[in-house]
Design a protein around this nucleic acid. Sequence first.
DNA 1: GAGTAGTATCGAACACTGTACGACTCAGCC
DNA 2: GGCTGAGTCGTACAGTGTTCGATACTACTC
Lengths: 236, 236
Amino acid sequence: MSAKPFSSVWTRERKGGREQGLTRDQIVRTAVELLDAEGLDALSMRRLGARLGAGATSLYWHVANKDELLELVMDEVYGMVSVPDDAGWRQAATAFAYGLRGAILEHPWSASLIGTLPALGPNALASADNLMAAFAEAGFGDMDVDFAVAAVVSFTLGATVPEVAWSRAAVEAGTDHLEMQQAIAPVLEKLASERPRLRERYQKYVGKSFDPAIVRRLSFDFGLMALLDGLGTRLH
Amino acid sequence: MSAKPFSSVWTRERKGGREQGLTRDQIVRTAVELLDAEGLDALSMRRLGARLGAGATSLYWHVANKDELLELVMDEVYGMVSVPDDAGWRQAATAFAYGLRGAILEHPWSASLIGTLPALGPNALASADNLMAAFAEAGFGDMDVDFAVAAVVSFTLGATVPEVAWSRAAVEAGTDHLEMQQAIAPVLEKLASERPRLRERYQKYVGKSFDPAIVRRLSFDFGLMALLDGLGTRLH
DNA sequence: GAGTAGTATCGAACACTGTACGACTCAGCC
DNA sequence: GGCTGAGTCGTACAGTGTTCGATACTACTC
């Protein structure tokens, strides 16, 4: 039984010191750079240290372990989404959803971390708070504010995270989406005898050269609008 | 530039052979057992081999690499959700959503994999196909079927994946949710001066000893019903 | 100025990881 | 008997996160 209470960067008291040389902020910034440039697998303490001109183990003075570092970089992503004030709940939610989606797509490594680390950094909390303010203002009930915001966040994450998995696979393979379609075709063919509908739907796309990025965006918009409509009916 | 085309267990031709001794199915089954028992970090090729009474490198005959193994176990999770036939689109979607949520919650390690691997295993495709059938039958338009199904999947994943991150943190810490609330309190207090609403909302929960699992389920149901309502208005 | 406490950095070492490679056994077939 | 391919495995390599103790440098007290 591992009985260490519950620990996160955010629940620890931060070490206050001279703040010269290496800085936690600087470490986090450089980590984000490294992640953006080379992806999640490329982030090791040794490589990050090297990029900072420091030894790997020096980082452990500023950060308890790698998980804490990841919590920090993750909150950096949440910090990139902004919610407009005084704009109405629908517009606030739309801006938030597109903002979060954009932030994750721009930093694809973040998709792999969402299922791993709970999000309770200041930026994540601030965004949620802003969105809740808009919903409360609009007249949503006490519990409904929490639930509605959770629904918007859920849909956005759930739409974006697997999207990243796909586009990363494509990028790593270095193939464009047409080659990818061809690579996937045999997989579908194998199932086609039992599931004719699957092949049928697939061939709807295969001829035309739709840009899958655009299709995904359409799909995102469709789902988001539907969700917001459904939330709207709960306003009264 | 890494120019290897695009590869996945599902796009490779499977090695056909004698199928004695170790089996791919057996490997996958045992991997799921190990994951369920000890979590994602505990799954190493060496440990999995040991549990099978085999050498670690023997596994590489049946599986190209660890990622492929993870694709296989992931599809096993998708295989646990069933969609009823002839039940109406709403009921089908609800059953699917609760089924997928249940499967992920029962196998929490799967949450960490969703953002990493694209889901194109037979089980994942079959579930999606079933759901699309129900939506098509109900009269959703051509593109709308795809979009609506994607929305339901998105919401379900997005609601469940972060949920797992929370409950895992609680389990690993070995603390119940009351202790967890106390651990988080100082984090909120630090932001409270700038964000009074945050503290206020938090204190709504802190007194009563709500079971967070029940609250999350309520939240899930609220969001799902709202989304389905919104989709319903697009039927005509 | 000397001494000391705390901040910060680092090298070496430990126990692991995924996996490439080559050697090996063994069943089935000519 | 000889051959082929399936299947298994030990060894080795390059890398990982993290612990520990030694070391430096700064700021402050006596």
